[in-house]
């Protein structure tokens, strides 16, 4: 019997990890191209989560259906942030960019606090308590839908960067900034598009995560940190790495919560992060900078 419990917890952790992974893909895409560490990532995630709650409570729109519209809304927000505020900072030192994004995070978190108050919010869908039985496994329906959606979205994004002309142009910018300028690419616009795409991942992940965890205005830093850990574990700038990192962290936390006290579970993710940083600083699937 015990083995089945572990297996069930593992699958649940894996599916939650996929959603975290999608959030981390956003961070990875932004860093990989724009070379800016988005310290407001978690706060953007909370925006998406609150939007999903408002849409659900106000209009009865299911968060899983709102994945695409919310991705679009966050895309617009991300595009505007990069084009309006961050672009002049791309040549500034790291600490300068850091303050800029921390300032934005502070504003976002506290506007949410003013609008929604400090209490935790969540969403109860009709299928909240449904589950699938697969052999000995009991899989939570919400997590299964969210995990599947994550895989589809990541695959689509991967395809975009690999095959679409615009995606290729963005990758050219990431590889060689000056070169991209020389061949006449509008780098600032491509950066804005990239930040928008990263934010769109956040929008999609946020509207799914709201089904899995409660949201408060103060949740942002924890999510940002989680995204960092995932991305560094998987390999900064690698999309499959971010998904893998998400799954690993999801699994680690789920298992640690089972074996130890749930409140200490994130210690194990930090331990994993420290190990990765020390022994494979480029991450599991990352490439060593040459």
């Amino acid at each position: 019997m015990a083995a089945e419990i572990y297996l069930n917890v593992a699958v649940s952790g894996l599916l939650t990890g996929l959603v975290y992974g999608l959030m981390a893909v956003g961070l990875s895409v932004i860093f990989g191209v724009v070379r800016v560490v988005n310290f407001a990532h978690g706060e953007m995630m909370t925006i998406a989560m609150y939007l999903a709650i408002v849409l659900f409570n106000g209009f009865g729109l299911d968060p899983l259906i709102m994945v695409v519209p919310l991705a679009a809304v966050l895309f617009a927000l991300g595009y505007a942030m990069q084009a309006g505020i961050i672009n002049p900072f791309i040549t500034r030192p790291e600490h300068s960019q850091f303050i800029l994004l921390v300032a934005m995070a502070l504003i976002i978190a506290n506007v949410l606090l003013i609008v929604f108050g400090p209490d935790a919010r969540s969403v109860q869908t009709p299928y909240s308590f449904d589950s699938f039985l697969v052999g000995p496994l009991i899989i939570d329906a919400t997590k299964a839908y969210a995990g599947a959606a994550t895989v589809v979205i990541t695959a689509a994004l991967f395809g975009f960067f690999r095959f679409a002309p615009l995606g290729k142009a963005i990758r050219a910018c990431a590889d060689n900034y000056t070169g991209a300028l020389v061949v006449g690419l509008n780098v600032k616009r491509l950066y804005a598009l990239t930040f928008g795409l990263g934010a769109a991942c956040v929008g999609a992940a946020g509207s799914m995560l709201v089904l899995l965890v409660d949201v408060t205005p103060a949740l942002g830093p924890a999510l940002t940190l989680l995204a960092f850990i995932i991305v560094i574990t998987g390999g900064l700038g690698s999309m499959p790495g971010a998904v893998l990192g998400g799954v690993l962290i999801g699994l680690t936390e789920a298992m640690a919560g089972l074996f130890f006290t749930p409140s200490a579970k994130s210690m194990f993710s930090f331990a994993l992060l420290v190990l990765v940083l020390l022994f494979r600083p480029q991450g599991i699937l990352g490439k060593r900078p040459s």
């Binding site: 850091f98 006290t261 930090f270 331990a271 992060l273 420290v274 600083p281």
Partner: peptide
Amino acid sequence: RFGVGGVYFAILTIAFAEFARIGFDH
């Protein structure tokens, strides 16, 4: 020693602080 620098170093320092926070919580 392992040549961890820049953003990676910054995140390592956050990780240690968070580690301590959760550790002292228990």
